[in-house]
Design a protein around this nucleic acid. Structure first.
Length: 123
RNA sequence: UUUUGGGGCCAGACCUUCGCUCCGAGUUCUUUGAACAAGGAGAGGAAAGUCCGGACACCAUAGGGCAGGAUUCCCCCUGAAAGAGGGGGCGGAGCGCUUCAAGGCGCUUUGACGGACAGUGUCACAGAGAAUAUACCGCCGUGCGGGCAACCGCACGGUAAGGGUGAAAAGGUGGGGUAAGAGCCCACCGCGCCGAAAGCAAUGACGGCGGCACGAAAAACCCAAUCCGGUGCAAGACUAAAUAGGGGACUCGGCGGCCCGUCGGAUAGUCCCGGGUUAGUCGCAUCCCGCUGUGUCUCACGCAAGUGGGGCAACAGGGGGACUGGUCACCUUCGGGUGGCUUGAGAGAAAUGAAGAUCACGCCGCAUCAAUAGUGCGGUGGACAGAAUCCGGCUUAACGGCCCCAAAACUAA
RNA sequence: GCGAAUGUAGCACAAUGGAUAGUGUAGUAGCCUCCGAAGCUAUUGAUCCCGGUUCGACUCCGGGCAUUCGCA
């Protein structure tokens, strides 16, 4: 199960679009934000961006660690995410205190709710 | 053996499965190019803070002066340089010994360690007096008055010994001297000046002279000496794409604190409004060797420009070697060795991760044992912290372990 | 990453190196009022931290911490 740079959000515009037009779900350890890409771009694999701020997580070591855990969880469960979606995972303070399996379970539950949803797009 | 202080080193090891970044033999797609991929490499002692110093890049050709900033420079050594490191000298503080005391000697520790007769300013409160010293109490003398007297009061003088105030009271201690006192005189000490053994030097054993003339603070302004052009890899270079050859205002400008000087030139420059691009590549990666060039130091020749010799190694180029990891071949006393080839973290919303197992280590509990140790079982812990242009320092953070040195205490011989 | 600036009561600001660090507002208690508001009186509360210079530090100097800002 690969997870290359092409599957990640790399532009500031992408992050801003997800944050302004997307829907949110609080999963305790992290905040899940998602948005369907516009119809003109061909439907492809979902993309994801990971955010861990210094204020909520801590110093550089903890920020890197939080992002690695979120990336690893997404890598294992990316088949649950429908195509054509952009996700943003924002780390919360509790992320590094919880067990890895616990956080993994929370992401799987969130993806199950994600399936039937049809998030609004601004045409 | 324990404790304390100082210095140095390490920052658990190994295996399995999946994954990330870079390099990539090679394979496929008949090419430009794209996809897949064996294999290899992949965080620190502080990568941190960004406090100093450089390299490198651009801005003027980086020149002179002023302004501004930094440092102290008491000396020697190391270093490319440094608010860098090491050693010494000098001073402060503490402790011990000694002295009547001042002081001296030893040990430890510490010092942003030039200058307070170049100048300006400050020293609150308290206190009589705080920098041209000062007479409140006290001490002493003379005169007058009172009292039998001891003595008391007043006035005029002398006096810095004593009290008291303060952070600090204008050399200290002892003796002589005096009406009482005072470097007024003497001895020792301190201080200043001169000479000087020794030492590369700072410094200075020791000797002589001066009777004291020199309060603190320059981390107040300042003065002296030395150094510094500015900006920082988001420096900067190149390629591609896109938009526009707009509108308005002003003027010689480049010029970065200012001036001189210098350079360029109206098809010029600055500012504002509006519009567009904000994509990619390079910069961007081990260490050593002086071969060539740059730079720098030095010696010889020369009036000079310069020429020649030698030293240093920060930068550019080229060559060679070493080390780390890997691999292949050979040898082997099975510890390893020799040779060939290859590699040297380099991201860009930013790679080194996730899960599991074993061993070693620390701590806790239980069992075994008379007790400790040891052994067994179970639990638990591993900090501080993540490269972002590179290098030399400084500072700060932190769990634990090992080694060395010094001091003290205890035990044994 | 590189480079700057600022830290004083809960909040907004003062203080030449020298009394017990002030002012407004907020808080608490009391007075006033039928009850509140306003007003009056009293009171609590602070120099970001650690060192150094000085007789004496919010102030001067050094180191740390925190916050804010700028640069393609």
């Amino acid at each position: 199960m690969n997870f290359r740079a092409g599957q990640r959000l790399r532009r500031n515009d992408d992050f801003r679009a997800v944050r302004e037009q997307g829907r949110r779900m609080d999963c305790g350890a992290f905040l899940l934000t998602w948005r369907t890409r516009p119809a003109d771009s061909q439907p492809s694999n979902p993309r994801v961006g990971v955010v861990a701020s210094r204020a909520s997580v801590g110093n550089a070591v903890h920020r890197n660690r939080a992002k690695r855990r979120l990336r690893e969880i997404y890598r294992r469960h990316q088949t649950f995410v429908p195509p054509g979606l952009d996700l943003v995972l924002t780390a919360r303070a509790a992320l590094l205190r919880l067990e890895f399996a616990d956080v993994e379970q929370r992401f799987a539950n969130a993806c199950r709710k994600l399936m039937p949803a049809s998030p609004p797009t601004n045409g």
